[in-house]
């Protein structure tokens, strides 16, 4: 109280100041701050525009030379004279196959962990495990790639792949998909590392999404005698369906564009082989391993690959965001 009483006295004691000047300084600061923040916000749009523009400009020579054939050509011969023959079919195939296999492994396991964490896990363990998984989602992907290269690849090549190859030797179709020789570098190894990498991601998102289910709904279901599985299947999953799909698509977007986790162990071969145990390449792996030493049309073709990847992930991410936003609106309502 004494402070407040003293305040006007002190103000009166100070020399009179120019009120108009202080006000105009205030006004100027206010306007400046508004425009600085506004321009920064627009800068986000400029970045996206810049990305699209620079990719199109960089890819233009390749677009003009190859046109739509680029998408359907398998051959990748950058040193051919006078014009190199370059096609994106190999990397596109590798990107889609590795992402699909990774998703096929990571979705059930990730959802399983999320269900475990929200329904089954003893209370004191829930928070620590959830935090640990979220921390793991932040580990740089090069660590996963390195581990796949030094540890997982050799292990699979020595123990897992020969067994699978001999098991399916006489089964039609499967003997093409799982064809030897076993190798440290293969599409399958890359998919496995990718799935381990996106696992914490899927788990963290599904757990967040499952947490939006009102406890009343679950309690009601348990109250009429539902088992845990029935609650999950009939209450939790239907309620969060949009969000789970959104989270899965977000993870797919990440898997499609992931570079360092796959580059080491995919083998960088542009030839499409029916076998999963054969080396392949993905769009991002091709860019990562060849871009720094490329020039001319070869470089332009790599940028075109990047543009394709951007368009692909843009579509997937847009779908994901729209779905997650729908769930948010539902949770807010």
């Amino acid at each position: 109280m004494t402070d407040m009483a003293l305040e006007p006295a002190r103000a009166a004691a100070e020399p009179a100041f120019d009120r108009a000047r202080a006000l105009s300084a205030f006004k100027l600061g206010d306007r400046t701050f508004y425009w600085v923040t506004r321009v920064s916000a627009l800068f986000v749009l400029i970045i996206l525009g810049g990305i699209i523009l620079s990719l199109i400009i960089g890819a233009w020579p390749a677009i003009r030379t190859y046109g739509f054939d680029f998408l359907f050509t398998q051959r990748w011969a950058p040193s051919l004279q006078p014009t190199p023959i370059l096609g994106a079919l190999g990397p596109i195939y590798g990107t889609i196959v590795t992402s699909l296999i990774a998703m096929a492994i990571a979705i059930p396991v990730g959802l399983g962990i999320a269900i475990f964490l929200t329904e089954l896990c003893p209370m004191p363990l829930r928070q620590p495990i959830a935090v640990a998984i979220e921390l793991l989602a932040g580990i740089p992907s090069i660590i996963y790639g390195m581990w796949g290269f030094f540890v997982l690849g050799p292990f699979l090549a020595d123990h897992f792949e020969p067994a699978i190859v001999s098991a399916f030797e006489n089964v039609p179709i499967l003997n093409t998909i799982f064809q030897g020789p076993a190798s440290n570098l293969s599409l399958f190894n890359a998919s496995l590392v990718l799935s381990i990498m996106i696992l914490p991601f899927i788990t963290a998102i599904s757990r967040d999404v499952f947490a939006t289910v009102p406890p009343v709904l679950k309690e009601a279901a348990y109250g009429v005698g539902c088992t845990t599985w029935e609650v999950v299947r009939n209450v939790v999953l239907p309620y969060t369906r949009v969000g789970v799909i959104g989270g899965v698509m977000l993870a797919l977007g990440r898997a499609l564009g992931e570079t360092m986790a796959v580059t080491f162990i995919i083998g960088n071969s542009f030839k499409i082989s029916g076998s999963l145990f054969a080396p392949g390449t993905t769009i991002s792996a091709a860019i990562a391993s060849e871009f720094a030493e490329s020039d001319g049309l070869h470089q332009s073709a790599l940028i075109l690959l990047g543009l394709l990847l951007f368009v692909l992930t843009f579509c997937v991410l847009t779908a994901a965001r729209l779905m997650l936003r729908r769930l948010e609106r539902k949770a807010g309502a």
Partner: peptide
């Protein structure tokens, strides 16, 4: 979208 865009694309952008 930028938040989850592949980081290698950012590399290509800055290269250009």
């Amino acid at each position: 979208i930028l938040l989850s865009a592949p980081s290698i694309i950012i590399g290509l952008f800055v290269y250009g």
